[in-house]
């Protein structure tokens, strides 16, 4: 069982090795990288390529590690007890399974995506150490141990908002998705929009990388923004020549709203364009 990328996802060699190592050695894989370089999509694609079911656990600032295991719904039980419901006798009725439990009990070996782990509290990864290491946990309310029949492939993404604890990192494989070079980028575009005119692609890539190199830009456009922009260009049927027009009137690329998401960046770019125009004129 080897992951080689899919027809919708270009995986570089280092990424493939990291994924395969994590799958074979049954250790979690930690993925970091600029926003929009396809961290979350990776899990979906691995699941497709290896034909394993995907279980996603989105982390928010309020998520607690315990919620991934199980939750004991005390409020419903209290209400049921006052209404005299029969269910109340069995505590199992009030245990809600979390995503980890779901993954551990899955019949097939699943992929568990823990998305944006850095959003949670700083202690969150530490609370999951034992569970991810041994792939088992104990349910106090019912006195049972839940153990993974088949150890799931765990993929964890992080946006670097918080440092992760060392003890946690030591147990993971790590891969940093760097921003694709223009060659890889062309492949990625090709995979997403096979019908796009190659001239348009190379022109727009040129504009795109130029834009990324503008000094002082706050939010650099990323792969996903490039793909959106290309889609718009195709929709509007913009000619490649229009992108190349560097002379007088339009120095700002058409439909730039898809690339620049911050009004300060747009202003900065407009100002630069204005200066360039003045120099030319």
């Amino acid at each position: 069982m080897k992951f080689e990328g899919t027809k919708d996802y270009i995986a570089t060699e280092d990424l493939r090795i990291a994924v395969n190592a994590a799958v074979t050695l049954e250790r979690p894989l930690l993925i970091k990288g600029e926003p929009g370089t396809g961290k979350t999509v990776l899990a979906e694609e691995v699941s497709k390529a290896l034909k394993m079911p995907l279980i996603t656990w989105h982390i928010k600032s309020t998520t607690k590690a315990q919620q991934g295991l199980y939750e004991y719904d005390a409020i419903t039980r209290l209400r049921d007890s006052q209404l005299g419901d029969e269910k109340v006798k069995d505590i199992k009725n009030y245990i809600k399974q979390g995503k980890l439990w779901e993954a551990f009990e899955s019949d097939e070996r699943p992929i568990l995506l823990i998305d944006e782990i850095d959003k949670a509290d700083i202690e969150f990864p530490n609370d999951l150490l034992q569970e991810l290491d041994r792939m088992e946990f104990f349910v106090y309310e019912t006195n049972e141990t839940i153990k993974a029949a088949k150890r799931p492939v765990v993929i964890i993404t992080s946006n670097n908002e918080k440092e992760l604890p060392d003890a946690f990192l030591r147990r993971c494989f790590f891969h940093y998705i760097s921003f694709p070079d223009s060659e890889t980028m062309e492949k990625i575009v090709d995979v997403h929009y096979p019908k796009i005119k190659s001239k348009l692609v190379s022109e727009s890539l040129k504009v795109f990388y130029e834009l990324r190199d503008v000094p002082g830009i706050k939010k650099k456009p990323s792969t996903s923004e490039l793909l959106d922009w290309l889609k718009l260009l195709m929709n509007e049927d913009i000619k490649p020549e229009m992108l190349r027009e560097k002379n007088a009137s339009n120095l700002i690329p058409p439909l730039h709203g898809a690339l620049l998401k911050n009004e300060q960046d747009v202003h900065l770019f407009e100002r630069l364009a204005f200066l360039a125009r003045r120099e030319n004129g």
Binding site: E13, A21, L30, K32, C172
Partner: peptide, 18 residues
Amino acid sequence: EEFYYLSRSTLIKDEKNL
């Protein structure tokens, strides 16, 4: 190369150390 990628992803856990 593959050994390099593997050792990198095993031993290094922070992009600032790459």
